[in-house]
Simulated scan of single mutants.
Amino acid sequence: MKGSFLSFIICCTLSALAQGKKGFVTTNQSTENIEEGFTIRTFDTRYEGVVGHPYLFESFLDIIVTTHSGDQVSFNGNLNIYEKAIVMNNSYKMLPLERVKNIEGEGKIFKILKENDQFLIVRNLHQGEDFSLLKSYNKIFKEAQYSGAYSAGKTRDQFKDNHQLLILRDNAMVPFRFNYSSIAELYGVPKKTVRQKIRDSYLNIQIEEQYSAILQLFE
């Protein structure tokens, strides 16, 4: 295990030097602690030629990974949502999410939660008085559809986003649709009041970046 981990670090470092980018860096604690936090397995190329991608970010970038023990590592990589693992750029290695607490990239923090033995990748869009509005990031894999020589169906496998909004309250998560009716029910106010307040504030209920500002109107 230790030999594999050291090889992994060397691989990342050489790759970074070749590209003139930041490599695998521990931002606190020791390398041994990071080794205990991760299990490493080989990444394959099974998704070559597939439409779309299984990743959280559109491209590989510098990210910070924090473990449950408080250790942090910084490297150029991405998060494979479909495989539930962190991928190192040009290293062909994947780090499963068992010990990962959160991932930071593009100025945003994504938390790793576990619900019914399934990993959830979420971001907090709004913190209310007694609830949190979360966005859960998911990907689904759809196989190509063939129905004959002149098939009009999808002829290539593809990944599609399947993200979802959730309300976290009292340690329970329930699906949430960001519309006038759901907001009215959430705060116990008439639907017409919700519509009018949003209109008067020149906010757009369709824009995710404005969700928090909209909810603040009723707090």
Rank of each mutant, 00 (worst) to 15 (best):
T31W: 14
V100N: 00
R169G: 13
R99I: 03
L6F: 02
F131D: 02
L6P: 03
Y47I: 04
I112P: 01
E36C: 12
R156W: 10
A184V: 11
E129M: 12
V51D: 08
V194T: 04
I34S: 00
E35A: 07
N162T: 07
T155P: 02
E104A: 07
F159V: 13
A85T: 07
K139A: 07
G148M: 03
N89Y: 09
I207H: 00
I167R: 14
L56H: 08
M94E: 08
I167Y: 14
M1H: 02
S201Q: 00
I63M: 10
D117F: 09
E58L: 11
T26N: 03
L168W: 13
V174P: 06
V87P: 06
K139N: 08
Y146G: 11
S7G: 13
F5V: 03
F119G: 01
F178W: 05
F176E: 05
Q216N: 14
R177P: 05
E115M: 12
Q216G: 10
R195Q: 10
N162S: 15
S91Q: 06
I34A: 06
F218C: 03
D161S: 15
S74T: 00
K101Q: 10
F176V: 11
N33K: 15
L61D: 11
K191Y: 07
Q206P: 04
Q145P: 04
S4C: 09
Y202A: 07
E208H: 03
F75I: 05
V122F: 04
N76T: 13
L14D: 05
E83W: 00
N90S: 10
S69T: 08
L97G: 06
L125G: 03
K108I: 09
D130H: 12
C12M: 02
V174D: 15
T155K: 14
T13Y: 09
Q118W: 05
Y180S: 15
I183W: 05
R123Q: 07
I109V: 06
F159W: 09
N89V: 01
E219Y: 04
S182H: 11
R199E: 12
L165V: 14
G107C: 02
P96G: 06
F159H: 14
I86E: 02
